[in-house]
Nucleic acid binder design. Sequence first.
DNA 1: GCGACAG
DNA 2: ATCTTGTCGC
Length: 351
Amino acid sequence: MPSWLETQHSLKRRLIDEDDFEWKLPTSSRNKTSVEEHGGHQLVLKYVGGVDVSFLKEDPSVACGSLVVLDLQSLQIVYQDYSLVRLRVPYIAGFLAFREVPILLPLIEKMKNNQSPYYPQVIMVDGNGMLHPRGFGLACHLGVLANLPTIGVGKNLHYVDGLNEEEVTRLLQAGRRRGEDFVKLMGNSGSIWGAAMRSPRGSQDPIYISVGHRVSLDTAINIAKITRQYHLPEPVRQADLRSRDYIRQHKSTLLNLADSSWKSRAAIDLFNDLAISGVLWFPVFKDGLESFCRWHLTDMHTTDQCDMFRSFLIKQVYYENLALTEQQLFAMRLEDFLISNGKRLLKFLNN
DNA sequence: GCGACAG
DNA sequence: ATCTTGTCGC
């Protein structure tokens, strides 16, 4: 089975980082009816999708994926769909796609299979595209697998190629003096990873636009510009708001499925005492339902650490414990495990 | 070696 | 991602 790293590299070979679509952007951004709309043969961009995933705070393994499609002219929603799933893949910086693509891709494929008239011509993704340590973030991953143009929209800067927020802020200031509300981000290596855009008003925080798949950076920036009314481009904002809403509305139902009995203060304290950092997922069972216990610890840092940690978890924690405790993973057992493996775990994390 | 790490 | 009500300001 290929590693996540290998998967990213092999999918990246299919990435297209230039415009590759039939449609054109509307000529003038506002009200004027474009020639193409009357012309018939030329297609104008009309349906822009947005995707996002939200979580249930009481049980972070419960997630809601959303796909919305907006009409570009009115920026009104013409299609929406949601899916509730239980996640078993932890979030690891640089590997977001492995967590969220399995939720989002089926929503897109469902639309295609149903031959929906609103099938999006481009999708804006809540997560980065090529602005990613290996140039292949969630938006790229989703775009390649769905074979759709995608645009990455990040709310935070993912550290890559020496880029940092101070630098971005500086660049944006300089750009503003030239009357630009965005600036392309060049890393130490000289390559351009994406762009930072100032908010239309108010908010200091920029958003980060990057190529997902089958669009150029310039096109990505243009689409972000014309879909942005607030801090986030409307398709992503709606996907975000509505997946959150959806999960809130189903909260009571979901809470019945959620299992909080495995929470053990003692084990968490033990982790803290051992000064272990990272995120641990333990499989637990209750009433025949599989659930995952997520131990959220301080933080995990370098990619190498993440990779080692992940393989450790999968080998040592996930499979072995699953096999050992088919019934329930009690706090005592968990503590026992930590006590007997704590040193090793520490050593492992510190190389 | 440390620290920076989308959602 | 998720921890969140009123509050300061245009």
